[in-house]
């Protein structure tokens, strides 16, 4: 069954014809060419595919593209203001070496931003560790990710984003 879907991805109108079974992550990667959103598991646990859908983080491997009809979707590619100016959370990950192989990173950053916003920019190490329950990283041992998110929360607040 082919269905036409339209949504806003990273601030731009996006549309395409998909099968009903097409997942949002497949739409983003294969139709839009936005390959920053990754797939790391098939049971909705690793969080490599996290994107923002209408202001809330979501696992794009567990959403049908048709469910995102009319939604505003932000992916990792939509965060940085420009090639030079990263989002404060991206910058914090870089500053604190919060990534190694980079595969979980987009989902981790998207979750982190949601986590910070939902905690009103006030996060502790403990809040961050528990708040990352839906994201798995195999490289970093989380130590630097946690540091990065705590620091990133402060810079997000300062930058007003």
């Amino acid at each position: 069954m082919t269905i036409s879907v339209s949504m806003t991805v990273n601030g731009k109108a996006a549309s395409g014809n998909v099968e009903a079974r097409t997942l949002l992550v497949q739409f983003l990667r294969e139709h839009m060419g936005l390959t920053g959103t990754h797939v790391g598991c098939d049971t909705s646990q690793c969080g490599a595919c996290v994107v923002d859908v209408d202001g809330a983080s979501a696992k794009s491997c567990t959403i049908l593209a048709v469910q995102a009809e009319g939604a505003k979707v932000t992916t990792i590619e939509g965060l940085a203001e420009s090639a030079e100016k990263l989002h404060p959370m991206q910058e914090a990950f870089r500053e604190h070496h919060g990534l190694q192989c980079g595969f979980c990173t987009p989902g981790m950053v998207m979750s982190a931003i949601d986590l910070v916003k939902r905690n009103n920019y006030q996060v502790t190490e403990d809040i961050v560790r528990h708040g990352l329950e839906g994201n798995i990283c195999r490289c970093t041992g989380y130590h630097n990710i946690v540091k990065a998110i705590v620091a990133g929360a402060a810079s997000m607040k300062a930058a007003g984003v």
Partner: peptide, 9 residues
Amino acid sequence: IGDRQVRNR
């Protein structure tokens, strides 16, 4: 329940 992303959906 679940994780943050599951609770959001």
